[in-house]
Every structure is written in structure tokens, then in C-alpha cells.
């Protein structure tokens, strides 16, 4: 197995408040890893550092064998757009666009023609059990439907890594598990590596393994152990 994405001794502070103090984590290609930890432990910050949203104060981030934390904001944006996918807790759908257009958005941003992008997007609706909801606006979707649309948007461009930050945080447990089930199934089919930030054990149980972030450090047995 090759390492897909890796944090090496990453440190990050919000002003004078340290969030990460030397966090190290390596994730294999195709692996689904749950990042757990109590509130304020720095797990979201770790995800943001891994995804190139935040630049670590110290340490390195490697993606697919290359260091990415030293790249420019523009390059990291392009990387996020082209190689990464994202699912957030809630509210990532643009309210003006239909569900299908929201799913097609990453493709449109990547320069894919509109008709083609929409065709690809429609394919995901069947896959995620959303058929018939293509033309709804985000305000007309239930929480679970909206998260499934968000999941489709996160995966539509065929990302190498999917970053999911509390993807079920705003859902009830049954709906949340449906979303997780779809997420894991789709990620496995595509061979997508998944970084899943959650504080819920039942959500983390969908992952291949978990790491615990505590006080800005990662408390995890080596991969070999699991």
C-alpha cells in the first residue's frame, strides 16, 4: 500500500491558541480513516491542514508523494478543486442552484461543458437514491437528501481524497448511517481515500481505522497494529 496523504509533525495555532502540536498521520490510498477526538481537540484543523486549506506553522503535508503545504494558495486551491472532494456538516449547497447544478458545480468550475457536467451529475442521483430530486432547490430538500446531494458533489469530479467533516453531524442517527453507508460504498467503488472527521463512534465505525486527536497530537497505534 502506498501512502496517499500524510501529515508530518504538523503544528498550527490560531493566534496564541495552539490547535495542533506536532500531529503526524499517514493514510494509505483507498483507506477510510476516521479522525476522532473531543471538541476543540484540533481534528477539524487537522483536516484543514491535510486538505491544504490551512498552511501549518511547522511540519509538512504530503499528498501523493509531493509536499503541498509550501505551494501557493492558488496551487492549493486548484489541488482542492481537482484532486480533493469535500462534504461538510451542512449548508454547502448554493441555495440558488438546483440539486443537479450543485452536484455539477465542481465539474463546471473545472471547465467541463454545462450539458456534460449536468449529465454526469444526473448519474449520481440514481446512484445515491435521489432520482426525481434533480430540480429541487436546497431549501426544498430534507437534511438527509441535502447531505446526499453534498456527497454527490464531493465525489462527482472523481477526487483522490474525500474530506468529510462531520458529514452526519446535523442528521438523526438513522439518516446519518444511510449517508455513511452510501459514502463508504461509493468511496470503495471509486477507490477514493476518505478522511472522516467525526466525534460519533458509530460513524467512525464505518472507517477502516480510527485515529484520536487529543490536545493537538495524534494518539494512534501504528498502521501495522490494526
Amino acid at each position: 500500500m502506498t501512502t496517499m496523504i500524510e501529515a508530518r509533525n504538523v503544528e498550527f495555532s490560531f493566534g496564541s491558541t495552539p490547535a495542533l502540536r506536532g500531529a503526524s498521520l499517514a493514510i494509505d490510498a483507498g483507506e477510510i480513516v476516521a479522525v476522532m477526538g473531543p471538541s476543540g481537540s484540533g481534528k477539524s484543523t487537522l483536516l484543514h491542514c491535510l486538505a491544504g486549506i490551512l498552511v501549518p506553522d511547522a511540519g509538512e503535508i504530503h499528498f501523493d508523494g509531493a509536499r503541498i503545504d509550501a505551494r501557493s494558495e492558488q496551487e492549493r486551491s486548484a489541488l482542492r478543486r481537482e484532486r480533493f472532494g469535500f462534504v461538510f456538516q451542512f449548508g454547502q449547497l448554493v441555495p440558488e442552484l438546483t440539486a443537479a447544478e450543485n452536484v455539477a458545480l465542481p465539474l463546471l468550475l473545472g471547465g467541463v461543458r454545462r450539458a456534460e457536467a449536468l449529465r454526469t451529475a444526473h448519474g449520481w442521483f440514481d446512484r445515491l437514491g435521489l432520482a426525481g430530486l434533480e430540480h429541487r432547490r436546497s431549501g426544498e430538500l430534507s437534511g438527509g437528501q441535502a447531505q446526499r446531494v453534498a456527497l454527490a458533489r464531493g465525489l462527482v469530479a472523481g477526487p483522490r481524497v474525500l474530506f468529510a467533516d462531520e458529514p452526519t453531524g446535523a442528521l438523526d442517527s438513522l439518516t446519518g448511517e444511510q449517508v455513511m453507508d452510501l459514502l463508504v460504498t461509493a468511496a470503495r467503488e471509486q477507490g477514493t481515500t476518505v478522511v472522516l472527521v467525526t466525534h460519533e463512534p458509530r460513524v467512525a465505525a464505518y472507517a477502516d481505522r480510527e485515529v484520536i486527536v487529543r490536545d493537538g497530537r495524534i494518539n494512534a497505534p501504528d498502521r501495522v497494529a490494526s
Partner: peptide, 18 residues
Amino acid sequence: ERRRPFSLLRLSGAPVRV
């Protein structure tokens, strides 16, 4: 009104110029 979807779009790599 659209602060969250916009900032999440930006996190997902949409350039600010969009």
C-alpha cells in the same frame, strides 16, 4: 445570507475570483 455555502465553496477549491 450565503456566507456558509460561499466559504465552503472556497474551501472546496473554488477560486475567490469565481
